[in-house]
Structure formats: C-alpha cells, structure tokens
C-alpha cells in the first residue's frame, strides 16, 4: 500500500512538471524559480536541523561497541571498534561514512531446517547495493558540475573519462549511471520482495526510492534516448548559478521532470529520513571515544551542587554547640 501511495505521489509530481512545457512563464517557474527556492530550503533546512541536533547534550559516552575497551595494559584493546581517543574515533568514522562498516557487519539469523541448525549469515547484498548507490550518486552529482561552471575544472573531466572508461555507445554510457539505476532497483525490489521488509516499510521509504529512480531514469533518458540540446541547457544552468533567472530553450518535458524531481528531493531532504547524510556524522555511538572511565563527564543539565561543609555546620549551630559543651574545631 505504501509502495503504491508513493508511486502515485511521484507520478503526480512528474506530471505536474510536464505542464511546464506549455508556457514561457511556467518554464521559468519550473526551470529556474522552483529549483532556486528548493535549493535555499535544502541549505537552510539542513543547517537548522544539524544545529538543533547539536543543542542536544550528550552527557555520557554510549559504549555500544563490538570490541574490547582499553583498560589494563596487558589486555589487548580494539582501538577501531572501541576507540579510547580521537585517532580511533576518526578511523571508525572514516570507515563508517565512506564504507558503511556497521552495515557491512550486519548479520541475520537463518534457520537451516534440514540440518536443524541456526546460522548467522551476513547480509552483504544490502551493503553492496547501498555502496553502489551512494558512491554512484556522489560521482553523478559531481559530474553535473560541468553544467554549472565555466570553465569546467580538469578534475571533472578526469572523473568523466574514468567513469566512461568502457566507451560504450555515443555519448558514452557512464558506469555510474547504470550502477545508480540498478542499485536503486535492487533496493526497491528488496522492500517489495521480502515480506518482512515489506511489512516494516513506510510510504516515506518508497517515496525516496521512487524519487531517486525518477531522477536517475529521466537523466539517463535525456542523455541517451531523448537527447536535449545540452549547450542551451548549460547556458541556462550556469546562468542560474550566476544569479540570472533563465530557463533553457528547446528542451522537452523530460528536462522539466528531471529538474522538478531534483527540486522536490531538495525540499524533501531536510524533513525526511534522507537526513541520515548529516546524521551519520552526529551518531553518538560512532563519534564518541569510549573514555567513560578514563575521563570525568559531567552531566550538563545537573543543577549546581551546593555543599555544606563541617565548618559551615559548626558556624550555623555555633551557639547551641557551645551551650551543650561541645568541643569546637575552631577553638
């Protein structure tokens, strides 16, 4: 059900973009104004959300780790899985952000019925598809730099030539274009095919996948099947990135679908599960060294503790103590 709702939502959004072709004013709105507003919402939204997270105190380290904590010198500790200092944390974050290490180590229980045995197997397909998707996405976004700036930096050309290494077709089909669509397809099928995953999937899970698939497929079609005049497209986009509101000439519905879905993604991003992108950097179980015992951590919302020393107590009951013949420290 959620899958259908999201599919309809993305289809309606795509159809909305098709109306842009009708008039010059709408072309300007869908080609330049909406992307500009969407990008601003994305920037402000992400910064506001991260700032909000940063205001939440983390009084204590959360040692949900898979390794031995640093303790006595003759017990070997696991610096990467249970870091005692900044260096270990940097290593753990590096592997988490770039290679999704915790997803790689994910296992699931499987019952081998004929042997009456329980097995813990790795779920590496999910990890592989996640890696393929995220890295392809990064490279695809980076490749789009050529539409925004003039002159195009050399590094973009190098990435393009590596990506198009196999020189299949004209214009060359990039490896990341194929990987992006195939990995998104797998991630979608995984939700639909596995009854357990389907049961826990919400419309928002599907919406992001359909949206990204819509963007990837419309982009692929524009490059390889229904080609657009990319020189005009670049003139408009690079102009847009120099604060001139112009819509490209002579482009069809596909272009507006692509751009509008990207705009929707930008707006959707700061309010959805896609925030895991900045969120991974602020995961308390990943980015804090496990030094609960080595260092003192004071709970930031504790009220100030007002002490009452023996000297003060003596002072307070001075007269009564003297009257009862109590020997005071002071005298």
């Amino acid at each position: 059900m959620g899958a259908l709702v999201s599919l309809v939502a993305v289809a309606v959004l795509a159809l909305l973009a098709v109306t842009a072709v009708a008039s010059d004013n709408l072309r300007l709105v869908f080609g330049a104004v909406i992307p500009g507003v969407a990008f601003a919402v994305f920037l402000v939204g992400v910064v506001a959300r991260v700032t909000r997270w940063a205001r939440a105190p983390v009084p204590f380290r959360i040692p949900t780790t898979a390794g031995q904590q640093k303790s006595l010198p003759w017990i070997k500790n696991s610096e990467l899985d249970n870091p005692s200092g900044t260096l270990g944390v940097v290593g753990r974050m590096f592997l988490e952000v770039l290679f999704f290490r915790s997803l790689f180590r994910n296992t699931k229980v499987e019952l081998i019925t004929d042997k009456e045995k329980v097995n813990y197997i790795g779920t590496k397909y999910l990890w592989a598809a996640a890696m393929a998707f995220h890295w392809s996405m990064l490279i695809v976004v980076f490749r789009h730099f050529r539409f925004f700036v003039e002159p195009v930096p050399r590094v973009v050309e190098i990435i393009q030539s590596l990506d198009g290494f196999f020189q299949v077709g004209v214009p060359v089909i990039y490896a990341t274009s194929v990987l992006l669509i195939v990995s998104l397809g797998y991630l979608l099928l995984r939700r639909l095919a596995d009854a357990k995953v389907k049961y826990i999937s919400l419309p928002t899970d599907y919406f992001a996948l359909y949206l990204l698939l819509g963007i990837a497929i419309s982009g692929f079609l524009m490059r390889h099947l229904e080609k657009v005049d990319i020189v005009n497209v670049k003139a408009a986009i690079a102009g847009w990135a120099s604060f001139q509101l112009v819509a490209p000439e002579g482009v069809g519905a596909l272009y507006f679908i692509h751009v509008f879905l990207v705009s929707v993604l930008f707006v959707y991003f700061p309010f959805s599960k896609l925030l895991h992108a900045p969120g991974v950097f602020l995961s308390p179980t990943r980015n804090l060294a496990n030094n609960n015992r080595a260092k003192r951590h004071v709970n930031p919302w504790n009220p100030p503790i007002v002490g009452h020393t023996y000297a003060e107590w003596e002072e307070e009951f001075h007269d009564k103590l003297v009257a009862s013949g109590f020997v005071l420290d002071k005298e």
């Binding site: 730099f145 925004f148 700036v149 003039e150 002159p151 930096p153 020189v231 005009n232 670049k234 003139a235 690079a238 102009g239 990135a241 120099s242 604060f243």
Partner: peptide, 14 residues
C-alpha cells in the same frame, strides 16, 4: 558552483 562562477571571470554564455 556559485563561488566558482563568481570568482572566475568567464561568462557562462553558450
């Protein structure tokens, strides 16, 4: 891209 275009003098025109 905005910085890049602002800093390079080149015009983005076709």
């Amino acid at each position: 891209p905005l910085w890049f275009n602002a800093l390079t003098e080149a015009t983005p025109e076709a």
